[in-house]
């Protein structure tokens, strides 16, 4: 999915992120084995529900090792620096969306929030304009899908006014 800028960069030193990835994969493998052991054996014929998780865990273990070797050798493709603020803004938007839906705030405020934060993450600073665009867009979506096409979207105080 990434572009191949400077792909031929020479192998660098140990890649810390790569080691974290390998560790995570190994951790997932352990969780799989642990979880598989919690399943009571009930199967009379053929293969039980524990077998596949263990097989996948073994595969993951091997892949963790392979990723670790790649990381130690510095074989990972080079990465450009990322803008943490932009990512954070979108994530905050998603978190707010989940919270608003969770607390019954309704579809329009939730998705408008996401619209505004995403737009801000892409560098726009015209909050009021974006807010208005967001409200109009999400209200249109709400009316079109909830009312005309009877898709049930979560309704909060705002939606009940419509």
């Amino acid at each position: 999915m990434t572009e191949s800028a400077a792909r031929e960069a020479p192998a660098r030193g140990i890649d810390k992120a790569g080691i974290v990835i390998a560790a995570l994969l190994a951790a997932v493998a352990l969780v799989l084995v642990y979880d598989a052991n919690q399943i009571p054996a009930t199967t009379m014929y053929g293969m039980g529900p524990q077998v596949t998780p263990v097989v996948i865990a073994i595969g993951l273990g091997i892949l963790a090792l392979a990723n670790l070797i790649d990381a130690v050798r510095g074989n990972l493709p080079p990465r450009e620096s990322a803008d943490p603020v932009a990512v954070l803004l979108i994530l905050v938007g998603l978190a707010l969306l989940i919270a608003i839906i969770g607390f019954g705030g309704g579809f329009i405020p939730a998705t408008t929030t996401l619209f505004v934060t995403t737009s801000a993450a892409f560098g726009r600073r015209a909050f009021v304009t974006d807010l208005i665009i967001g409200v109009v867009l999400t209200t249109l979506i709400y009316v079109a899908f909830d009312r005309l096409l009877t898709l049930s979207l979560p309704a909060g105080p705002l939606e009940r006014l419509l």
Binding site: I90, L94, A110, T111, L114, F115, S119, D130, G134, I141
Partner: peptide, 10 residues
């Protein structure tokens, strides 16, 4: 992208 996210979550 803001629009994409709105539709995707919808």
């Amino acid at each position: 992208y803001a629009g994409i996210l709105v539709f995707a979550t919808m």
